[in-house]
């Protein structure tokens, strides 16, 4: 560091460069290199081992004509849209309720957030037990005398994805609530006073003044939820293992199964490339709106 003559450009700040080697390696080798590698090999017919034997878009044609993949995509869409809407709505309502200067706020917040500390495996297994048709909620209600009561999402392929959604919302809404609460606390008290002076009802104040002001918080929440949706895997594995049949399969599980069980690497790579593409489709417009918009404005 303390050399007397002007040091060579490469050796300037040498310690910082050495210290950044892990970051540089991770960024280049794993994130860029790994992704490029997977995309490249998705155009090959690799089976048990990755081989550079290009077959064009064959893997993608096969992917989009596999019923299991189509079911996975449909599930992801249903799950994604619903969890996005419900997380935001429930998270915001809970935050708004907690923001009413109530007593025991810390206790309520602790209760709403604790599931977030638990893993998806634990969450999935608990809800598998609660939704067990024989002993769980359905069994209990039937035991009370309502014999025809039916609530067995995990064993009914038409509604199984909603069973997973219930568990996911239980686990994740606490986080959204916390973000929203922080956003609500960040709003100037004077806004509320002004709205009250003007005689605007509370509900309208929330809908037309507060929520538009919290746009950055909503966008952050949106990005977090969206990133979580694409990655959903453990919850499904724990709760249903993709069943009944293939009714609750998701893309992440498809990738894992084809790579490590079916020994059809090419399919796994093609499916994971589609996942990457879906993230790009979400992230790029967001980045454009966030950062491109600022430059224009």
């Amino acid at each position: 560091m303390s050399k007397s003559e002007r040091p060579n450009q490469l050796f300037r700040n040498l310690n910082a460069k050495v210290a950044s080697i892990p970051m540089v390696l991770t960024a280049l080798v794993i994130f860029v290199g790994g992704s490029a590698w997977t995309v490249l090999y998705s155009f090959t017919n690799s089976k048990l081992l990755p081989r550079l034997n290009f077959v064009g878009l064959d893997q993608y044609y096969r992917l989009w004509s596999t019923p299991r993949w189509l079911v996975s995509i449909e599930n992801l869409l249903v799950y994604g849209v619903l969890s996005l809407v419900f997380s935001l709505v429930i998270g915001f309502i809970l935050a708004a309720l907690l923001d009413q200067k109530i007593r025991f706020e810390d206790t309520f917040r602790t209760i709403f957030l604790y599931p977030f500390a638990l893993s998806f495996i634990v969450t999935g297994l608990v809800w598998q037990w609660l939704l067990n048709p024989e002993f769980g909620i359905q069994g209990v209600v039937r035991g009370l005398g309502w014999e025809s009561f039916s609530f067995d999402p995990l064993y009914n392929s038409d509604i199984v994805i909603y069973g997973i959604l219930i568990a996911a919302l239980w686990q994740g809404t606490g986080l959204i609530m916390c973000l929203m609460l922080a956003g609500l606390r960040g709003i100037d008290e004077d806004i509320w006073k002004a709205a009250r002076v003007d005689g605007i009802p509370t509900l309208k104040t929330y809908l037309f003044i507060i929520i538009p002001m919290m746009r950055p918080v909503f966008i952050t929440a949106l990005v977090i939820i969206a990133a979580g949706i694409v990655k959903v895997y453990d919850l499904v594995v724990a709760q249903t293992s993709g069943g009944p049949g293939i009714a609750s399969e998701v893309p992440a599980k498809y990738v894992y199964d084809y790579m490590f069980f079916a020994q059809n690497l090419g399919q796994g790579f093609a499916a994971s490339t589609m996942m990457l593409l879906s993230v790009v489709v979400v992230i790029v417009p967001w980045a454009y709106l966030e950062f491109g918009g600022k430059k224009r404005g």
């Binding site: 970051m23 540089v24 960024a27 994130f31 590698w37 790579m259 996942m275």
Partner: peptide
């Protein structure tokens, strides 16, 4: 140092890449 921010941006963008894409490499 020169280029440090580039790697940092790659790192942050990389956080959004689904793990499934990088698992096999």
């Amino acid at each position: 140092f020169k280029g440090a921010d580039t790697f940092f941006v790659i790192l942050i963008v990389g956080a959004f890449i689904p793990y499934q894409v990088m698992i096999y490499p």
